[in-house]
Amino acid sequence: MGFKLLSKLLVYLTASIMAIASPLAFSVDSSGEYPTVSEIPVGEVRLYQIADGVWSHIATQSFDGAVYPSNGLIVRDGDELLLIDTAWGAKNTAALLAEIEKQIGLPVTRAVSTHFHDDRVGGVDVLRAAGVATYASPSTRRLAEVEGNEIPTHSLEGLSSSGDAVRFGPVELFYPGAAHSTDNLIVYVPSASVLYGGCAIYELSRTSAGNVADADLAEWPTSIERIQQHYPEAQFVIPGHGLPGGLDLLKHTTNVVKAHTNRSVVE
Results as ranks from 00 to 15, higher is better:
L173V: 12
I58Y: 08
T207P: 10
P239T: 02
V237P: 03
Q229Y: 11
G240A: 06
A129V: 10
G65I: 06
H260L: 07
T153A: 11
N92S: 06
T14C: 10
T36L: 10
H115E: 00
G240C: 01
V121E: 01
D119N: 05
Q49V: 12
A98Y: 13
S223P: 07
E267A: 05
S191K: 12
Y188G: 02
T140F: 04
V75Q: 03
E172I: 05
N71T: 05
Q49E: 11
Y34A: 09
S160A: 13
N149I: 07
E80W: 04
P107Y: 07
P244W: 09
E233S: 12
L73A: 04
S139D: 12
D214G: 07
V28K: 08
N149P: 06
L204D: 12
L127N: 01
P170G: 06
A129M: 12
S208V: 11
A215C: 05
Q235I: 10
W55F: 06
G197P: 06
R167T: 13
I74E: 03
A94C: 03
Y231A: 02
T134Q: 01
Y68L: 06
I17R: 09
A259Y: 09
P221K: 08
A129R: 11
A111D: 02
L10V: 14
A25L: 13
K102N: 13
A19D: 15
G123R: 05
S27D: 10
P138A: 08
R110Q: 13
I20A: 11
R206I: 15
D52R: 10
Q61L: 07
Y231G: 01
L24W: 06
L6M: 12
A129Y: 12
L247V: 14
A21T: 14
Y68P: 03
D79T: 09
A234F: 04
P190H: 06
H260K: 13
A111N: 06
D248S: 12
D164K: 10
A136F: 03
A165K: 14
K251W: 11
I238T: 05
S155D: 13
P23W: 14
I186T: 12
V37R: 09
G163D: 07
L97D: 00
A178L: 06
V67F: 15
V171F: 00
V237G: 03
V189I: 10
D183N: 07
V28Q: 09
S162H: 14
H230C: 04
L13D: 07
I58M: 08
D79Y: 09
V75P: 03
R167K: 12
E225D: 14
S62V: 05
A200E: 02
V256W: 02
L5K: 15
S137A: 08
L82F: 07
A213R: 14
G2K: 10
E99R: 13
I100W: 01
T153C: 06
F63N: 04
P176N: 01
A259E: 11
R263V: 13
A192V: 13
A144E: 04
G158N: 14
E147V: 14
A15E: 06
N262I: 10
H230I: 10
S16H: 15
A59V: 10
E157Y: 10
N149W: 06
V187H: 00
A234W: 02
F63W: 06
R206Y: 07
Q103K: 14
P232Q: 09
D64S: 15
L6N: 15
G53P: 05
H252R: 03
F174Y: 10
P35F: 09
Q235M: 09
L127Q: 01
Q49G: 12
G169A: 06
Q103V: 13
S161M: 14
A21H: 14
H117S: 00
I100T: 07
T222D: 14
L127H: 05
P221H: 06
L204R: 14
H117M: 00
P69V: 15
D77H: 08
I17A: 14
G197I: 02
H57A: 04
V45I: 08
E157D: 13
D125N: 12
I238V: 09
S205Y: 11
G65F: 06
E145L: 13
G169L: 05
E39G: 14
T114F: 01
V45E: 03
G72Y: 06
Q235A: 10
K91R: 14
Y48M: 15
L10E: 13
L10I: 15
P244C: 02
E172N: 02
L247G: 10
G198Q: 06
L217H: 01
I201W: 02
V67L: 15
A209D: 06
V171N: 04
T254R: 12
V45A: 07
F116L: 04
V54A: 06
S30T: 13
C199M: 01
R76G: 07
I74A: 05
A130L: 09
E145G: 13
A19E: 15
A136N: 04
V132I: 13
S160F: 09
F63G: 04
T93E: 00
I74W: 02
A178E: 07
S27I: 09
P232E: 07
G169Q: 05
V112L: 11
V28S: 12
Y12E: 10
L106D: 07
L247W: 15
I224T: 05
S191R: 11
D214A: 06
G53I: 08
V112T: 04
A94L: 14
V28N: 11
L204P: 06
P170T: 07
V11N: 10
E203P: 01
A218N: 12
L156E: 03
A90L: 06
G43D: 10
R76K: 07
P221A: 09
D119I: 01
P176V: 01
S7L: 07
T207R: 13
K102G: 11
P221G: 09
F174P: 01
A144T: 10
T109M: 12
T36W: 14
V124D: 02
V11F: 09
D214E: 05
S155N: 13
S31R: 10
Y175F: 10
N255S: 12
T182F: 15
L159W: 02
G163K: 05
A25F: 11
V187S: 01
G105K: 11
L185A: 03
Y231V: 01
S205D: 12
I20F: 07
S162P: 15
T36D: 14
L185Q: 01
H115M: 01
I84T: 01
G197K: 02
R167E: 13
F236V: 10
I151V: 12
A87F: 00
L106P: 06
H117I: 00
G43M: 05
P221Y: 06
L10P: 14
H115P: 03
V54Q: 04
V146H: 13
S30D: 12
T36F: 10
V132P: 00
M1D: 05
G245M: 02
L195A: 01
V124C: 03
G122W: 07
L24K: 12
L73D: 03
A133S: 11
V11D: 11
L81V: 11
G210N: 02
V124S: 08
E157G: 12
S56Y: 15
I20S: 08
G72D: 05
E99N: 12
L13K: 14
D216T: 08
M18H: 15
A51D: 10
V75R: 03
T86R: 00
A259L: 09
R76H: 08
L96G: 00
F236Q: 11
